[in-house]
Design a protein around this nucleic acid. Structure first.
Lengths: 323, 323
DNA sequence: TTGTAAGCGTTATCAT
DNA sequence: ATGATAACGCTTACAA
């Protein structure tokens, strides 16, 4: 009980050979006689020996580790990302370090520096600060922006602009003229997609139809205000994410308005929330995105700019209306 | 672009001092003259230098890293765990390696060996194989079983037995005599809690009330069978997790049975699913559990056996009935 | 106060 | 085919 990790030296002594020979057996880096190989392998198996990675890395070996930095975990979307990234890199024999920057530039930079000092082979980052990316760019380390499109950097993302578009187009196709956008408006491609579709269809663009807030419980009054004097059944709601759709729909339900019957709403991200809530949602093909990202993280010769198309996962939360 | 990571030697050269002096400045390990300190610090800041961790570890320093091994990520419960573990250890300046053993003993052992070779300072593990724990026990490394109670090992967990009890007692208190258990029965403390409460209250224990299956879509027929010839409105449903509650409730809803009105059901884990579904659920105090686990991972002198109490998060999915 | 040198556990380059 | 040895980048004991 309480044994220190064995070293190659220990294994070597147990096998009665020199330490480099153990290394040779493990790495098959040069010929070793059959009987010595057997002997060493047996001891390695018996003790579940695994060579110290720090020493290997210091010597110049790969760390077989990548880092994932996201700016929050409150959205289930990013938690799911952890699941897929771990799965995808494990296939390649890699290990995952997970970091949350909590929307802080300083924490994000700390994380990046830490990953560099840990000799990771690559970084996947959902960034909040371009300056930090600039710093990373000056390094030898491969990195890829995920889930955001940032000019001048390699990224693998889903087009949130297109997401905003297809959600809005979906409502247009279902006959709606008054289409609300609920969610953050600033610097939000989803919102731009929403606006463009309205313009193209000569539909009303009005502050009256735009609810720009992070929905919190204390905002219920604001929402009540927002809903006042509206013919609710003729309005469609495009939300910036499922969480918002959830909170919003909850409020509507308290007014005895039934989703898919009285109210048309579409979520974003197709998380477990949309599934359970049984509402349509714009799905970002997460698994595919992560697969593409991981595949491209290392083979990166040129800049990579991949923008995947979102799709709508339909769940009957939008009813057709006659115009 | 493409710069290699700097070393202390590089910093030393830039500052015109010896490499150990740089180390001294960084670690404040001994006195350094004011002006040299300034000079070195400026260069470190300018280049965002951070010392190579592999070298430090090899030299005997702490890795400031811990590993988390869980046996699956399909349950949202474990994804949430990632969030809290990362948060809790980040407070202490630690970094998190996340691994999924995918219910495989072999993968689990590989993960453990990998973490050892990476010189992590501790391991939190939701294990599937006691033999692997035994292996870990022979090492110097602190580790803690989370979310399971395994005799002979240190653990921080929530009592699933008590969880099964309070869920069942809740139904008893609400007047039910026929209480169903839905979920895996083998080696499941929740199920034992359920059984004990039924016994203590002299209530019917019958295979007719126990649905032992992992609910999949293809099992719908089995469920239909299960529900046949039952007076549904007089039965309460205790489920082994929210996911099961979700699938089950979906089936009930298709029969136009309304939760909280026609059907009484309680979930387990109080995940986002229960929240969105708006059903009561047995909550394991995850954040607290992780806090306790992380706090105790390193300060472990003796064996630690902490079993937290679950609580019921009430959401009106259980209606009282007259007996 | 500062520099020199040893050593952590590997891999790779030499000899033998 | 195998062993001795240097080097990776750091911390620490020792020398100056």
């Amino acid at each position: 009980m309480g044994e220190k990790n064995l070293t190659m030296k220990d294994i070597a002594k147990l096998a009665g050979v020199s330490q480099p020979t153990v290394s040779r057996v493990i790495n098959k880096s040069s010929k070793v006689s059959k009987d010595i190989e057997e002997r060493v392998k047996d001891i390695i198996a018996k003790y579940n020996f695994k060579a110290n990675e720090s020493a290997k890395i210091l010597r110049g070996n790969k760390s077989k580790t990548i880092g994932l930095i996201v700016y929050n975990f409150s959205n289930y979307y990013y938690l799911e990302m952890v699941k897929y990234v771990e799965k995808e890199i494990r296939k390649k024999g890699y290990t995952l370090i997970v970091m949350n920057s909590e929307n802080s530039k300083e924490i994000e930079l700390d994380h990046i520096k830490k990953l560099l000092s840990k000799n990771v082979e690559g970084i996947l980052i959902a960034p909040i600060c371009i300056k930090n990316l600039k710093f990373l760019k000056n390094k030898e380390l491969p990195f890829l922006v995920i889930n955001r499109i940032i000019e001048g950097y390699s990224y693998v993302s889903t087009s949130l602009y297109k997401g905003g578009r297809i959600a809005t187009e979906y409502m247009v196709k279902n006959g709606y003229k008054d289409i609300c956008f609920i969610g953050s408006v600033n610097d939000n491609p989803k919102f731009l997609g929403y606006l463009d579709v309205l313009k193209e269809n000569h539909l009303k663009i009005s502050n009256d139809l735009i609810l720009d807030l992070k929905l919190k419980k204390k905002n219920i009054q604001l929402i009540e205000e927002f809903l006042k004097n509206k013919n609710l059944k003729e309005i469609a709601y495009v939300t910036a994410d499922d969480e918002i759709a959830y909170i919003f729909s909850n409020i509507l339900l308290k007014k005895n308005l039934l989703i898919g019957k009285d109210i048309s709403i579409i979520g974003f991200d197709n998380t477990i929330i949309a599934k359970v809530l049984n509402i349509s949602s714009v799905e970002q093909p997460m698994e595919k995105m992560i697969k593409v990202a991981v595949d491209n993280l290392f083979n990166r010769k040129n800049k990579i700019e991949i923008e995947l198309d979102p799709i709508i996962k339909e769940r009957m939360s939008v009813k057709k209306i006659d115009r």
